[in-house]
Design a protein around this nucleic acid. Structure first.
Lengths: 129, 129
DNA sequence: TTGCGACTTCAAGCTACCTTTAAGTCAAAG
DNA sequence: CTTTGACTTAAAGGTAGCTTGAAGTCGCAA
């Protein structure tokens, strides 16, 4: 029956628009699927891809970073090696982002407990991190 | 001497463009400074503001969220109260972001250690989170 | 055969966050 | 007085990540 999925079925699963899916294909982060009289027919593989894409997007990666990651896997230089390099790099970026989030958390906590009546007064305190 | 700062001095301190500073003023996240024959002259207060803005931006807040945060401080309802509410809310958002980052970290670590030769094969594994 | 609904493409539109450009003002130096 | 350099404005331009619109195709049902 549902051996293949139409674009709108896929879209519904992920709560995104069909136009977004076509766009992802266009910029090369989703492979072009088989066609049945012009219409895209997806296998479950697209679900795995989209799941990774969504998580990456949620954590702040751009579509172009994601593309780089995917191409890094596919490309020539013995896949697992290049792949490892790229994911190491992305992991380092994640570390940085997490540190920044923590700094911001500290900042917000200070702001929350601040009793200043003017923002600038408060800002002055904050800079004493 | 440097009792006041020109827009380009401020820009240099933060490594941003003068146009960005004017834009921040335009959308209301930087207060309009005094003018000396038309030109903006800043006090050190602007540095505190910009520091907070930069950190917030780094952690993914939009300029409009930042504006809301600032206005929340300034606005009517006994400042510290409204302020506290808003920062609580932002803190909750931060928590969520951190969780997502951690999920992504797990994902990337799995990918790094993956020996699949095809992305889809790898994706399948990943979905067993 | 006609109509319907779900798809297709291509191009233009939209929001956020700025940057760039054009044209002008100001003040201090030569 | 003219030039220089740093500023001013308003408006247009640019990029990311889509969305929307117009016009057309496909296959099935009445």
């Amino acid at each position: 029956m549902a051996d293949f999925l139409t674009i709108s079925e896929v879209a519904r699963v992920f709560g995104i628009r069909t136009s977004a899916i076509r766009y992802y294909e266009q910029i090369g982060i989703l492979p072009a699927p088989l066609r049945k009289s012009g219409q895209r027919r997806y296998t479950e593989n697209v679900l795995f891809r989209l799941a990774v894409i969504q998580r990456a997007r949620e954590t702040g990666f751009t579509l172009y970073e994601i593309r780089k990651l995917f191409f890094g896997f596919a490309a020539g230089t013995s896949p697992p090696k290049r792949w490892r390099e790229l994911s190491e790099q992305k992991l380092a970026e994640l570390q940085l982002r997490m540190e920044r989030l923590k700094t911001m958390e500290t900042l917000l906590k200070k702001m929350r407990n601040c009793h200043c009546h003017a923002l600038d007064e408060c800002g002055k305190k904050l800079l004493a991190l």
